[in-house]
Amino acid sequence: MAQDQYAKQDPRSQYPRPDSQDEQEQSHPGTGRRMGPRPDHGEDTYRGCDRLVDRKTVITGGDSGIGRAVALAFAREGADVLLSYMEQEETDAKQTAELIHQAGRQAVLVPGDIQDEEHCQRIIDRAVKEFGRIDVLVNNAAYQMSQDDGLLDITTEQFDRVLKTNLYALFWLCKAAVPHMPPGASIINTSSIQAFQPSPNLLDYAVTKAGIVNFTKGLSTDLIGKGIRVNSVAPGPVWTPLIPATFPADKVDSFGAQTPIGRAAQPAELAPAYVYFASQESSYVTGEVLGVTGGKPLT
């Protein structure tokens, strides 16, 4: 029987190490179904304890990776979940929805591109129509593409896509959602260790993640007068479809080895941080950035 997140384990050997990650590439946005080893989203390892009973939640990028792990955890903690995702990720999104249904909660699927402001408004409108309110907004969707020559390889088209997906959409979604969020609600933004330790091959992505940190801190001060808390989770390397979809194969087989723990995180290891920020347990925490980095310092 798989051990859940409460069982004591050695973090170094709890999950596969980089030597099991064969060289592999996928076309963007990638899928966990073709990854080896398969990512753990908590299917057999996350145990809920009613920490989010009847919360109405929205998660962007909810089809796979961190988004799927958070959706699964939220549902097992008692929340209903709206999933936002790209249309080409429909198969993965339906699998995530099935996990939510198995937990006895409602799943709402809204495909589309969050680079479009009108689509961001449609996401929020659908959540309000289905749920009546929004208790938790998780801005998780992101786009990255590694470029070996850094700045000189980044096209204006790529720069626009990264900023619109990672920053513009966050702004649009927050602005649309806040009027429907009651006191006690929570916004959780996915930042990254890249905000603090930018890699040259991810220059544009790192810029957006630094912007998310700044936006989180500023918005937390703006919204606490409404009783809404705003926090951010900053992951280190995480074994998600984004990795074989954005890195060359020869870098995938060593991904995560540079951390003190010696491996990449599995998506299931990120989910508890989001549950914490969404729950009443973090009632006195706002404007914070929680690093889940395998021991790499954020600063």
Rank of each mutant, 00 (worst) to 15 (best):
Q9G: 05
D10E: 07
R12I: 14
S20K: 11
R38I: 15
H41P: 09
R47S: 11
C49Q: 10
R51M: 04
L52E: 00
L52D: 00
V58H: 12
T60N: 13
G62L: 08
D63Y: 03
V70T: 09
L72I: 13
L72D: 14
A73H: 14
F74Q: 06
D80F: 10
D80C: 08
M86F: 07
A93I: 00
A93C: 02
Q95C: 02
Q95D: 03
Q95G: 02
G104P: 03
R105D: 01
A107C: 07
D116K: 05
Q121T: 14
R122C: 03
R126T: 06
R133S: 02
V138T: 03
V138K: 04
M145G: 06
Q147N: 00
Q147I: 00
T156I: 11
R161G: 08
K164C: 06
K164N: 06
K164H: 09
N166M: 13
L170R: 05
W172Q: 06
W172C: 07
M181Y: 07
G184C: 15
G184Y: 12
A185S: 07
I188G: 04
I188A: 07
T190F: 11
T190S: 14
F196I: 11
P198E: 12
L202H: 05
K209C: 14
A210C: 12
I212W: 15
T221G: 04
D222R: 09
G225Y: 08
K226F: 15
A234D: 11
T240Q: 11
L242V: 02
I243F: 08
P244S: 10
T246W: 02
P260T: 10
I261Y: 00
P272H: 10
A273H: 09
S282K: 01
E288M: 10
L290P: 00
T293H: 09
G295C: 11
K296V: 14
